[in-house]
């Protein structure tokens, strides 16, 4: 089990500039969790993909970033939630190269590869939430 360590930040993601802000906030948390430079970069890149997805496909949403601990290790967890159309075929959406828009189709599948834990909840017509966690080694 993992428990939040108390540090937490909530951000509205409505547009382009919010994607940049999400990156900066996630990087701040990654530094506090003492993630290695490569792990910081992976986490921030994954966050950037998911924040952009929330803007482009979900019509905007919300990001929650927090420091978490599991007794042994410290990590960063970020959750990106939108009220968009949802994803009808999750397996397809997680396939490299598949996109419902004009992107490269690497955002979701790529983000999953960059983090330690990846959880996707979605309901057609209700929205999508993706939670990612990266642990300090």
């Amino acid at each position: 089990m993992t428990a939040p360590t108390g540090e937490r930040d909530e951000l509205v993601i409505a547009g382009d500039e919010d994607v940049v802000r999400v990156r900066q906030v996630v990087r701040g948390f990654a530094l506090r969790a003492k993630l290695s430079l490569v792990d910081q970069t992976k986490l921030v890149t994954a966050a950037s993909e998911l924040a952009r997805n929330a803007v482009n496909y979900g019509g905007g949403g919300q990001a929650v970033v927090e420091l978490v601990g599991n007794g042994r290790r410290v990590g960063v967890r970020a959750r990106f939630a939108d009220d968009g159309p949802g994803i009808s075929d999750v397996e397809l959406a997680l396939t490299d190269g598949w996109t419902s828009g004009s992107g490269l189709g690497l955002g979701l599948s790529g983000a999953r590869r960059l983090v330690d834990e990846f959880e996707l909840e979605t309901e057609v017509g209700r929205g999508t939430a993706v939670t990612i966690t990266k642990w300090a080694r």
Partner: peptide
């Protein structure tokens, strides 16, 4: 390109 960026890009699939 920074090394961390290069590693991340490859893992991302780009």
């Amino acid at each position: 390109m920074r090394p961390a960026v290069a590693i991340t890009l490859v893992e991302l699939g780009l």
